[in-house]
Write a protein that binds this DNA or RNA. Structure first.
Lengths: 225, 225
DNA sequence: GTGGCATTATGAAAGTACTTATAGTGGAAG
DNA sequence: CTTCCACTATAAGTACTTTCATAATGCCAC
């Protein structure tokens, strides 16, 4: 699930981005109207978190344009002033939800989830790569149809990788996504190595045909061998 | 059964809330359109008692949005003016019942009950998992055909689990579903542990072939062993 | 190739977080 | 006033995570 955060207050962008990444969402950001419009024109997103007050134009205009273009992204608008006008206008323009600032991260995450679920067509679903499958809802992981028991961190790591097969994953980014705050300015990724090692052993021991390959100097990459 | 009261007249909220809580419903409240929409987006309710005239927007709009979102909550609309229009519009939009203000508490409770019953598939509906069955209507729980007596919280917890067999249930989410607001941002789930422990003992003592398993770091999971 | 530096891997120990157990307090209902 | 239930407090056991020390591997220059 790919999300675009459109917001000019950098501290808030930082915070929000962190929280959503931790949930496994793929997050990109834009801090003004023009760059947001550009990204939306070029890339496709599942969900847009859209501030109403933006440098360079109103978020509501952007929303209007999106809908006119037939963009399928779900839109959650946010507004600093707890303004009913914005809310009503926004929802009228086809926004999927409204969030008054300041909001709690937990709440944002819950709404995102509900958006994700709606767009994923409800029900249980599983990520699959090679002979490995992972179900976020039940916490179940199988290799070649056999259940494999993963601990929390191992599960989170695999969940992150399996959503981005074949993509290079920077260690710092992975750490940020899985551990969150714990990684303040760590230049030491021993804890990542340790967990990756355990995960590899379990996948390997179960006969997985996929592998977390190290890419020297960059990070990791989940590949199908 | 979790109910959201959407109503701006505080005295009425108070009264209604009290009456419903006394009946064993879990009650939350919202006093305007935005906060109601917010709660409905984030949490799930079995039933919504919805005033038509709200600060911030019309209850009918909210109802429309709910249905558009595929929200499964049953909706009972209330209206101060004994307006046929509201009634017709509301029911047309998919409301499950209509109540003209002022109403008697006894009547409200009766309608709630009937809505609850209807939503659970009329008649006596039971969730079944393994050799355990739970009837929301009658509060009856059986293990291998034998009645088992559960206290209220234990019942609510089992009900939550049995609707999501095999699914990971986060403690915070469970707490939210069973206890409602009570859990503001508790980082201490002793009260959950205590109840789960008792429920386990009863299920086990009755010879259930299902089990509330702890999944370290994730929460709980109802499994069939 | 070989040496040197940087990055990644490993196994075991130390540290931390999570879960359960038990007893008991407080409060609501009758 | 009494009883019963819901929750709290305390404590202890267990399981997971991170750290530490050390080893292995990859890259680059010569």
């Amino acid at each position: 699930m790919k999300v675009l955060i459109v917001e000019d207050e950098l501290a808030l962008v930082e915070l929000t981005s962190k929280a959503l990444k931790k949930e496994g969402f793929i997050v990109e950001t834009a801090t003004d109207y023009p760059s947001a419009a550009e990204k939306l024109a070029v890339y496709s997103y599942d969900c847009v978190l859209l501030d109403v007050m933006l440098p360079g134009g109103s978020g509501l205009d952007l929303l209007r344009r999106l809908k006119a273009d037939g963009n399928r992204a779900n839109v959650i608008i946010t507004s600093a002033k707890d303004s009913l006008d914005d809310k009503v206008t926004g929802l009228g323009l086809g926004a999927d939800d409204y969030l008054a600032k300041p909001f709690h991260m937990a709440e944002l995450v819950a709404r995102m989830r509900s958006v994700a679920r709606r767009s994923m067509n409800a029900g249980d679903f599983a990520f699959v790569f090679g002979n490995v499958s992972l179900e976020p809802d039940t916490g179940r992981v199988t290799v070649a149809g056999q259940d494999v028991l993963l601990l929390k961190k191992e599960f989170d790591i695999l969940k992150y990788f399996i959503q981005r097969p074949e993509h290079i994953v920077d260690k710092a980014v992975l750490a940020e996504a899985v551990w969150g705050d714990h990684v303040d300015q760590a230049d030491d990724f021993q804890f990542v190595y340790a967990q990756v090692k355990n995960l590899r052993k379990k996948l390997d021991g179960a006969g997985a045909d996929i592998e977390i390959r190290s890419v020297y100097g960059f990070g990791y990459k989940l590949i199908n061998r």
